[in-house]
Every structure is written in C-alpha cells, then in structure tokens.
Design a protein around this nucleic acid. Structure first.
Length: 466
RNA sequence: GGCGACGUGGCCAAGUGGUAAGGCAAGGGUCUGCAAAACCCUCAUUCCCGGGUUCAAAUCCCGGCGUCGCCUCCA
C-alpha cells in the first residue's frame, strides 16, 4: 500500500513521493500571534500533527516547520491599543500557543521561526525579486508585479480578470495593478521597523513564509499546509514569489484543512462565537478535540457544537474501555484467542489502508472500533491476559499514531494498583456474604477517588474516571 | 458579480461506477443483589431536488435549490 495525498494544486489525490527518499520537508502556516488561539487553530495544528505522526509511522523522518507571524498589522494595532511593545505582545501569545500544543499532545515542530528573526532573509528575497524584474518600489513600499508571473492564480484557480471584476475595496493608485501585493511596507508612525535598501519598513504578509521555507527547508519542499482560507491570497502569493525567484516548482503537495464551524458559521471574533482552546481544555481533555477532528475528513468543514463534543467524549470513552484488564477469569475459550490474534493483524492492515488514502482518519477509527469490539468480546469470553495484552498493545500503538493519549495511567496510580485489587477482593467477599451495603460503600468511595468499579461476568474490573 | 467546496439515518460521519463503514443517541434482549460496562438484535430499499449517461450511480454529466468558504487580515 502506498500513501496518497490530496493536492490542492491538482485537485486530485496523488501518490506521495518525497523529494528525498525517507525524508519529508513540511511547512505549515502557524498563527498570527495577537490573541489567544481558538479551537479552529487547534484543529489545524491537530490535522498536521496527525499527518506528521503518520508519515513518521511510515518510516519517514519529518522536518516540520511551523512559523509564528509576530510582525503584522493586527499585532501592531493591538499592541498600540494596549500601549505595549508589539514583539512583547507577540511573545506572550507565542508562549501561550506553545503551551497549547503541548496540552493537545501535538509534537513540537522541528523549527518554529518568527518573522522578526528572519528579516535579513526577507530583504534578500525582495532584492532578488527586484533584480529579476518581479518587484518594484514606490515610496518605500515594494510590490510584487503580478503581471510578470504568467501562471499566477494556478493554486486558487482564479484569473486576474475575474478578480479585478469583483473588486470592492479601495485600490492603492500607486500600484501598477490592483492585484500587485506588498512585499515590503514602509514604516508608519508608531510601527516597528527595520532598516532596508528602501528605507525603514517591515515585511508584507506573504513574503515571510517564502523566506522561512527557503531558509529552513530549501527551495523545494514536499508538503505545505494550512487552513483552506489561506489558499488565496496567501499561498497563491507564496508560489508567485518563490517560483519567480527560484524558477523551480516550490511545493509538491499543497494540503489544506477545512474550517471549523460553530452552528454553520466560521468561528471569528466579530461573530462573537469564539471558543478558545483554553476554554475548551478547562472543560474537556485534549483527546476530545482530537477525536472530534479525527472523526471527520480533515478537508471538509468541521461541525463544532456541544452535541458533537459530547459525542466525541463518549466515543473516546468506548475506545478507552478496551484497555480494561482481564478480570479474574474463570475458564478460557480458545477460539476467542484465535479470533483476537487474527483481528490484530487485520486491524493494522485496515488502519494503514485507511490512512494511506489521504489520511482518512474516520475510516481508520472505524477499524479501531472493530478492534475494540473484538477485544471486549474476547475479554468476556475469558481470553488469556497475554493475548488480550497484545491486542491492547496494537490498539495503543495505532491510537498513538493518531496522537490520542487515552487513559495513560499516572505513575502514582500504578503504585496504587495493588491496593485497589485488595479492595476489590475484600468487596468480593462482602458481596458473597450478601453484605451489599458495605460492598456498595467501597464502590462509592472509590468512585469519589476517581476509580470506577464494574462487575463483569468474570469478575470485577476497574478504570479511571475522568 | 467572480472563484471554490459541500449537501448521506435523530446527531456526527466514511464511502468517486457494482448495490449504504464506524461513533453517538434510541428501542428490545443477555449478564447482574443493585449499578455501570460489555455483548447480541433492531434502527437509510436509500444518499437535497429534477433530468441524462450506463447492464449497473450516493458515486459520472446537465439544470435547479440550499449551506459554507475565498475574492480585505484570518488555521
């Protein structure tokens, strides 16, 4: 089986082949750090984390770069409102985002560059474009000359004429064409600036990503990702700049995630329907959001409502339930062992073929749920602990490829395990003696301590309650 | 106005030519002192609507309707 990835450029699933065998260069557009991240940002980071984890599972080494946009109109505006330094403000939200990545079990990107630390490379890039006639200066601003780029619009499938027809914002008359975009902006009063050949100024929005890719990954990369709202103009412009400069195809696979929507609306500050990641995590574990994301196609819009969150939480519980250990089993059923061993292999194959199909995580989850069911059946049938453990190990390994943590027991709790078993034993004797009131007290008290007891056919099992 | 995506059961959702995965919810049952969990059974003759292509369409084509995104900063 080989991996296929949907490429926004061709609008088709294509066999994945990296530029360099065994190695993937992946760049993902990160957030503009002017405010707290919302669950939509988290969705994007989760999607590309899953992609990375699966590529690593397939044996690739992944060089994963995610940028922080810390020099930007919005950052400056907000900093000025608050009367603080823009870079200090950005720093605060960068630290916050780093923490969120960790809480959501997102593997740290290999490099996390920031615009403010890439200025030299950006200036160099702009100079290169000017030297080749792709850019021009007006009063300290530098613009990209779109008319020079013959295949401009190939990613978003837009024609220059189409775009100009629907123009409904004010055009800067100094530009040669309305579609020309800023590579470098002359500094205005109260804005951070850097010295450049065109005077004091700062980078335009799109140029930063081109510069960071060139700096950290090279002229050509395998995967470039981000939300599908970035296709135009951001990624379109990145292609224009970078390919005009290098003359080489920039990105092999453009990968875009769909937008997360709250009740059919894009989540945005202006609509007042933001759910920040912090808010979400104060009520749910990170796995819930990840499960929600995994349960759908990463390319389609994601429905985010209280009901769907609750469904994700319960689905997760079912997944976790499969890790319960064998009870004090009475008699074993050999056929259950055979079925389970067979399922272990089938689950891995099914999982891989689902994920190979453009990271079809919801189909992969369906396979895992089949494994869960078979594990539960085998446990009820009294399968031996060794075989059950092997099936659980496979389930654990595959859920980890998806980045789910499930109920990873804390060390403290592992220490408590013998005592829990002791209590279960005592309670068992009380139940045999029909001392139900006392038996129930033990169950209730353990529940208060976060441990749920369940009396199954073959004995009592326990699990951690969230 | 232009460009693009999407519309599958009560909810989320997979499925791009061969006769509808999975999860949640719901109903019935097994087990159980009770509870919970688990397991078994049931739950879309049908995939927004109308045409067309085909032996065969949720899947391809045309036309509607609807939702969303982008065209201005946005994961």
């Amino acid at each position: 089986m080989s991996l296929k990835i949907y490429n926004t450029l061709s609008r088709e699933k294509e066999p994945f082949e990296s530029l360099e065998p065994g190695m993937v260069r992946m760049y993902v557009c990160g957030p503009t750090v002017y405010d707290s991240a919302h669950v939509g940002h988290a969705m994007s980071s989760i999607v590309f984390d899953v992609i990375r984890r699966y590529l690593e599972y397939k044996g690739y080494r992944v060089n994963h770069v995610m940028n922080y946009t810390d020099v930007d109109d919005k950052v400056i505006r907000k900093a000025n409102e608050l009367g603080v330094d823009p870079l200090d403000l950005a720093e605060k939200y960068i630290e916050e985002y780093d923490r969120l990545l960790e809480s959501l079990n997102i593997l740290p990107p290999s490099v996390k560059p920031r615009v403010s630390q890439e200025i030299d490379g950006i200036i160099e890039l702009v100079e290169g474009l000017m030297a080749k006639g792709y850019a021009y200066e007006v009063d300290g601003d530098v613009y990209f000359r779109v008319s020079e780029d013959e295949d401009y619009g190939k990613l978003s499938r837009r024609q220059l004429e189409d775009m100009q027809a629907g123009f409904r914002f004010e055009v800067d008359e100094r530009k040669e064409s309305p579609m020309d975009f800023a590579l470098w902006k002359a500094a205005k009063q109260g804005e951070p600036f850097w010295e450049s050949p065109w005077g004091k100024g700062r980078p335009g929005w799109h140029i930063e990503c081109s510069a960071m890719v060139l700096h950290h990954l090279g002229e050509q990369i395998d995967i470039h990702g981000g939300g599908n709202d970035l296709i135009f103009p951001h990624h379109e412009n990145e292609i224009a700049q970078t390919e005009s400069l290098t003359g080489k195809p920039f990105v092999r696979y453009w990968v875009h995630n769909g937008m997360l929507q709250i009740r059919g609306e894009e989540m945005s500050k202006s609509l007042g329907n933001m759910v920040t990641v912090d808010q979400f995590l104060s009520e749910h574990e990170g796995d819930v959001l990840r499960f929600l994301v995994l349960n759908a196609s990463y390319r389609a819009p994601l429905v985010f409502t209280d009901e769907v969150v609750e469904q994700a939480r319960r689905g997760l519980e079912r997944l976790k339930g499969a890790f319960r250990p064998v009870a004090s089993s009475v008699e074993t059923d050999p056929s259950s062992q055979h079925d389970l061993i067979e399922m272990i292999q089938k689950a891995r194959e099914g999982f891989e073929s689902a994920m190979d199909d453009d990271f079809n995580s919801s189909a992969a989850l369906a396979v895992l749920f089949e494994l869960v069911r078979r594990i539960n059946v085998a446990r009820d049938a009294g399968v031996d602990a060794h075989t059950l453990g092997k099936a659980q190990d496979t389930l654990r390994e595959l859920t980890r490829v998806l980045g789910l943590q499930l109920a990873d027991k804390s060390v403290a709790l592992l220490d408590a395990e013998p005592y829990i078993h002791l209590l279960i034993q005592v309670r068992e004797e009380l139940r045999n003696a029909k001392q139900f009131a006392l038996a129930d007290t033990i169950r209730d008290r353990l529940l208060q301590l976060g441990i749920t007891l369940e009396d199954g056919k073959t004995g009592t099992t326990w699990k951690l309650r969230r």
